[in-house]
Simulated assay, not measured.
Amino acid sequence: MRIATIGGGPGGLFFSILAAQLPRVDEVTVVERSPEGVTYGWGVVFWDELLDDLAAADAPTARALRDVAFTWHDQVIGVAGGEPVNLGGHGHSTGRAQLRELLTARAREVGVDVRFGAELDPATLAGYDVVVGADGVGSAVRAAGNFGTTVTPGDNRYVWLGTSTVFDSFTFPFVESAHGWLWAHAYGYAPGASTFVVETTAATHAALGLDTMPTADALALVGELFAAQLDGHPLHAPQGTGETLPWLRFRTVRNERWYDGNVALLGDAAHTTHFTIGSGTRLALEDAIALAAELGRHDTVTAALAAYGLRRTSEIAPLVTEARGSARWFEDVPRHIAHPAPDFARLLINRRRPIVRRLPGAYLGYGRLRRAAAAAPVARPARAALRALRSRHG
């Protein structure tokens, strides 16, 4: 079996690593249009569960990733310079360039032909038994097929920035400008390096002039707004930035089918989950594991790709719902941020729950009554009120 993977991101490379080790596979080629060593973005986050999944699928890859992982502790939420709220937890991150480098090295070690700075002629793809589109949210492979694709843009504007400030915790700072709130999703991923994703509403983005402001001026303005969090360190624009910062609207990609003939989609080409839940890399790597497993399990390509599509659409469905809820919550930050900082932090950390978006006051009231009942077991009125609130709001 000959396999071609279009796209040399984490999902495409890891799939090639696993596919090259299948008994029936004779040749695996990865084609990536960007030059080797060139990546766009800063760091990616992942969790212990992903490391466990990688270890089960390919132990050398898991060991290499553990060796370079930056571990952050706690989730810290700060509003307008007020007392931060610490919600605990931990996770890991690493630089995109470092992740691609270690996956490329492992792919070549198992015999994958990895070609950077190249594109396959569509006519050439006819010679492959399986073609995998792992070429991202704007997938050319997907555009050339029949997958029943819908792409829905979100309302907020965001930009991926970098800084030399090291955030040892996953930090959510919220700052108020003259035209509304901006916030960041900040986390370290290497010594002396952090990702700093800035997000705001469309109205604030336009009122501040960030859509047309020159890059240097925009970096200065955003840096000034977050000066307390950046501790004197500058913000850096993504590689290849032009005259203005690349502010984006998140695109939610859905496909009715994940395969068309012998072509399968993987990662952001197949689905996107909002960056606020930090699962993009994880899902792409888990797609890779599932696709390789189904190719190894079935006698025909058609059966394998059909099984892969059914399996992954079912497995990611809960996360798709949670991601949609998280995105909507952040689109509604101006509504929630009037709450006291501890309550606002509680809403943020539980933002994936439907009641938090629809009835935030009821959710907070329910939590207070529940804690009161636990602290005072004999307080019958509190218990009665708790039961009544639960019955009204499910």
Rank of each mutant, 00 (worst) to 15 (best):
H205T: 06
T150S: 13
A59V: 09
L99Q: 00
W247K: 13
A374S: 07
A345Y: 00
R96N: 07
V198R: 01
R346Y: 10
A373N: 09
I349T: 06
E243F: 03
E256K: 14
A373P: 05
M1G: 10
E243V: 13
D332W: 11
R368H: 07
A97Y: 02
H233M: 11
E27P: 03
T281N: 01
G154F: 09
T276H: 06
T252D: 13
E199D: 15
G95V: 08
V198C: 03
G240Y: 10
V114P: 02
L102M: 13
H271W: 09
G127T: 08
T281D: 00
A338R: 10
R353Q: 11
R2Q: 15
R371Q: 15
P23Y: 13
P234A: 12
A123C: 08
A341Q: 04
E32M: 14
R357N: 13
T5P: 09
D332C: 12
A362V: 12
A19K: 06
I355S: 10
N255F: 07
A382F: 03
L102H: 00
V378C: 13
L18V: 09
Q75H: 13
V110T: 05
T152S: 15
D129W: 01
T163C: 07
R312N: 06
D129K: 04
V31S: 14
T5I: 12
A202R: 12
L266Y: 05
